[in-house]
Amino acid sequence: MCQVNTDPMKSRQGYVQVVVPPSIITKETSTDMVVREASNVTLTCKATGYPEPYVMWRREDGKNINYNGESVNVVDGEVLHIVKISRLHMGAYLCIASNGVPPSVSKRVSLRVQFPPMLSIPNQLEGAYIGQDVTLECHTEAYPNSINYWTTERGDMIVSGNSVSGEKYEAISTDSGYNKYMMLKIRNVSLKDFGSYKCVAQNSLGGTDGVIKLDEIPAPSTTSTTQSPYHATSPHKNGRNSNKKSRQRPFDYEVEEWRNPDYGRDYGPASMRPPGEVPDVQSPGVSHRAQFVLHLSLSLLSLLLPAIRR
């Protein structure tokens, strides 16, 4: 208050408001948690500041939160209560406090959900022929991370490179969070390689396995399926060209060459027809000159027949 001692006294009052940026109270805020799947989980976050901070929860990776049956991006309030938590809730959560006075603050809480191994097999039956390389696949989920391996039908554990000459097997495992992708490559498959293979996953909460059967299939044929083309010869056995091979054509057509048996001269191009059919003298493959000679011969024969009879 500013005061002037006059008669009457004069004064003026002023008000000072002190703002305080938010601050998270560590002792009253949840820390990293590891819980069993299907249990209930409560995360708490406390903050101070002036004005009173606004507190909210969200996932660090930006994904939505399955909260009370709804998929939401942000949960308002100091308490995040999840009923029947699942592996889908696993991840890092951020508690964010703000009150309009910069800077805003946040606290990271890691939430881990434990569950026994589970697996899925894309193809339970695989086929391969002798000499082929084949790959078997298996997908598993587990937390804590599981120990994964392959076994044969007899129960022997498969180790990469356990072959006398070179590496017979190659086992590969790729992790992505609580997911694990298993792959077993079998090189140069032989008769003894056919049978059942088992992918196994185990952690401190339990274990599981799945069976993949490898069957033999016929090897692809390496011989050519194309038939040899026909080698058609002249239909006139007594002609000069009776031993001459004709030009080759595809197997579904037969080639005949029409020739004069007396002079060995060609009359027009070779005709092409399906095998087994009788050639038609009127077909386009026979030249007009050959047709003329044929008709002339028939006419002369009809004139000579009466004289022969007499």
Rank of each mutant, 00 (worst) to 15 (best):
A128D: 00
Y129H: 11
G131D: 01
G131L: 03
Q132D: 00
Q132G: 02
L136E: 05
L136Q: 03
L136Y: 08
E137I: 05
C138V: 03
C138E: 04
H139D: 12
H139A: 10
E141S: 06
Y143V: 00
Y143L: 01
P144W: 09
P144L: 10
P144R: 08
N145V: 07
N145Q: 07
N145M: 05
N145G: 07
S146F: 09
I147S: 12
I147R: 10
I147T: 12
I147N: 12
N148R: 06
N148F: 04
W150M: 00
W150Y: 06
T151D: 07
T152A: 04
T152W: 05
T152V: 05
E153P: 05
R154C: 11
R154F: 12
G155E: 12
M157L: 04
M157Q: 13
V159I: 13
G161Y: 13
N162L: 13
N162I: 13
G166Y: 08
G166Q: 00
G166C: 02
E167S: 12
E167A: 13
E167T: 14
E167L: 11
E170P: 10
A171I: 09
I172A: 12
S173L: 11
T174L: 12
D175Q: 15
D175V: 12
N179C: 14
Y181L: 08
Y181V: 02
K185C: 04
I186M: 10
R187F: 14
N188C: 07
V189R: 09
V189E: 03
V189A: 06
V189L: 03
S190V: 13
S190R: 15
K192P: 09
K192G: 10
F194K: 03
F194P: 08
G195S: 03
S196W: 14
Y197Q: 00
Y197T: 01
K198M: 03
K198R: 06
K198D: 00
C199N: 00
V200H: 11
A201E: 01
A201Y: 01
A201F: 00
